[in-house]
């Protein structure tokens, strides 16, 4: 029975607190940044609205272009790696076994600590005076701290990506595992009885069912990596910074007249992230439709 419709007042009243909160604290700030990026900043004596001058400055700078590519690279590589590793681990763990709750406790641990904890761990292990370098020294493979490859503070970004992996392999793992737990072993077993080998059973029966979980988790992972500030700031090279690091640098410039450049930066970050996520989702939808599901 549709006694659930027609209660317009109850619906509006119920949604109001959450919607208004996010309008004020989420949409409001984004709009402020948006208009300022187009030159509306009277308190700094800027009154050129609307102008694309700041976008032109930002987009034309070599620094921005470098930052964009590095940001994409730091975001994309860990997304791919953690998606593959997390999914594989989840599938491996989905076969019921003893002690798996205990084991997954440790895998879930990185999920609930700040990214900064991951940064501290990576520093302790992978810096040139870190524990891994010491182990290599003990094994006689390196002579001095300088022989250890630079993993942190270099444009290669492995320090940054290691932190992401530390947090995100467990994330993908948990999401996919919960989807797997929801579907039970019957599908796989049914496929096996129909003559599919383990790989084909996975490919044709399990994978399509866990795809939504994989897509959702990798999407969140990418979205996070693309906009992360503190990890690239702490573990990245000083040049080029990633887009968020560069954006905040612009914001902190003493010349307030250039503040809209920072706003142009964050708008570009938002737009870019939005476009990538949109394309990804669209590709997924297409793939789904081509399979005839939905």
């Amino acid at each position: 029975m549709n006694r659930r419709s027609g209660n317009t007042r109850a619906i509006l009243l119920g949604l109001a607190p959450a919607v208004l909160t996010l309008l004020l604290l989420f949409v409001g700030p984004l709009l402020l940044a948006l208009v300022q990026s187009f030159g509306h900043a009277p308190m700094f004596g800027l009154q050129e609205f609307p102008t694309v001058r700041f976008y032109r400055t930002v987009l034309g700078s070599r620094r921005f272009q470098a930052a964009l590519w590095y940001t994409l690279y730091y975001a994309l590589v860990p997304t791919i790696l953690s998606t593959v590793a997390g999914t594989a681990l989840a599938v491996a763990a989905s076969v019921r076994m003893r002690g798996s709750r205990f084991l997954t406790f440790f895998i879930r641990l990185p999920l609930v600590v700040p990214y900064l904890v991951g940064a501290a761990l990576v520093v302790a292990l992978f810096s040139n005076g870190g524990l891994i370098a010491r182990l290599l020294y003990l094994l006689g493979m390196i002579e001095a701290t300088g022989d250890f490859p630079r993993i942190l503070f270099s444009a290669g970004g492995w320090g940054i990506m290691l932190v992401y992996l530390f947090k995100q392999v467990p994330f993908v793992f948990i999401v996919v595992l919960s989807v797997l737990a929801g579907m039970g072993p019957e599908y796989r077993e049914a496929a096996r009885t129909l003559g599919a080998g383990p790989w084909r059973a996975f490919r044709h029966v399990v994978l399509p069912r866990i795809m939504p979980g994989i897509v959702t988790s990798s999407l969140l992972v990418f979205a996070f990596n693309f906009q992360s500030y503190e990890i690239p700031y702490l573990l990245g090279a000083s040049y080029p910074g990633t887009l968020p690091v560069e954006a905040l640098r612009r914001y902190q410039l003493p010349n307030l007249q250039r503040r809209p450049e920072a706003m142009a930066y964050v708008m570009v970050i938002t737009a870019f992230s939005g476009v990538v996520l949109f394309l990804y989702l669209r590709a997924y939808r297409r793939w789904e439709r081509s399979r005839g599901s939905l």
């Binding site: 604290l25 989420f26 700030p29 984004l30 940044a33 906009q227 968020p244 964050v266 708008m267």
Partner: peptide
């Protein structure tokens, strides 16, 4: 999923 740096800077203003 919206970059926190964007929300954060706008929010600061």
């Amino acid at each position: 999923i919206v970059p926190q740096i964007a929300v954060g800077i706008g929010m600061l203003m």
